[in-house]
């Protein structure tokens, strides 16, 4: 297996496991491929036949109705057959290992696995296992693994930024909130730096920042007002209550006071700055309703673009 298991020997996308280490040309190709898919949703028949006869297995070892649904819609709009498996409620509770599950599903003629797992690296492990057992025609897409990566979310965020701001090389982008627990933040930072964004800021309390986050090429701000000054894009993160162990925060009210995006804080960004959020939003915790529903929010377009980006990834993986 080569050093980047996501790419085949011709440098083409084989699996989508993480944005880290993905060449700029591949990211650009995914965004370019997504563009024509946005139009498919406006047709009378919202479907194209690319993945007709292929089987996409959504393997969700961790619950996420929203992400699973977006992958399901994307696969169905490509005419694939979609099989949803919520595995935390099935085999693993009976003691089957991750790779046994994969072997069994491979025997059911899977073409693409979309994997969500609470452990970082699980999709990677599956891709390695498939290669080691001579089944590398099966593709793996990471739909979120532990604290590691959520590449399609990062890519749809890049699509959204490009849609509204065109040129990445002139932007200042702020990522705000629970960076520590966020695989989305990691994917965003890798994508933004790869695409040439000159200044990526992270804004968070010290308790919600990973150690040595600066090594990812970002500027760190603990004061939100200072960090938002003059930015073109504000990317909010969800406060991940379910991933927090112990008391990292005093209270949601206290968090909102210092790190909630309110209209007066947003006024410090550029007047045409856009506000993004990967959803689901905690209104009144990380974002004020006046901002979430305001004219600068592009949160619902993100959801729509997410379908096109996932269609692009699947169609790039599902062909020859």
């Amino acid at each position: 297996m080569n050093s980047n298991p996501q790419l085949n020997k011709h440098g083409e996308l084989q699996h989508l496991l993480t944005i880290e280490g993905l060449p700029r040309e591949i990211i650009a190709a995914i965004l370019d491929t997504a563009a024509p898919f946005t139009e498919v949703a406006e047709r009378e028949v919202k479907k194209v036949p690319l993945l007709r006869g292929k089987s996409v297995f959504n393997l969700f070892f961790e619950n996420s109705t929203r992400t699973r649904t977006t992958f399901e819609i994307a696969a169905k709009r490509l005419s694939a057959d979609v099989i949803n498996l919520n595995i935390n409620t099935s085999s693993t509770t009976k003691g089957e290992t991750l790779l046994d599950t994969v072997d069994n599903l491979s025997a059911l003629q899977a073409d693409i696995f979309v994997v969500r797992h609470a452990s970082s690296g699980a999709p990677h492990l599956i891709a390695q296992h498939l290669a080691a057992t001579g089944r590398d025609h099966i593709r793996v897409i990471n739909a979120g693994d532990g604290r590691h990566a959520h590449p399609t979310q990062g890519l749809l965020d890049m699509y959204t930024i490009r849609h509204y701001k065109k040129d990445f090389t002139r932007l200042t982008v702020a990522i705000v909130g629970d960076v520590l627990h966020s695989r989305v933040a990691r994917s965003q930072i890798h994508a933004l730096t790869t695409l040439g964004v000159p200044e990526v800021r992270v804004i968070a309390p010290k308790t919600l920042l990973p150690t040595q986050v600066e090594q990812m090429g970002v500027r760190v701000f603990n004061d939100m007002r200072e960090g938002l000054r003059g930015v073109d894009v504000v990317m909010m993160l969800r406060l991940q209550n379910e991933r927090m162990n112990g008391a990292l925060l005093p209270s949601p009210q206290e968090y909102f006071k210092y790190y909630g995006l309110t209209p007066d804080k947003l006024d410090l960004a550029k007047p045409d700055a856009i506000v993004m959020h990967p959803g689901p939003m905690n209104r009144g915790v990380e974002i004020d309703s006046a901002v979430a529903d305001g004219r600068q929010a592009v949160i619902l377009p993100q959801v729509t673009f997410g379908i096109a980006v996932r269609m692009a990834v699947m169609s790039m993986l599902g062909g020859a």
Partner: peptide, 8 residues
């Protein structure tokens, strides 16, 4: 694989 331009 997917061929052709990227114009919608």
């Amino acid at each position: 694989g997917l061929q052709g331009g990227r114009k919608p």
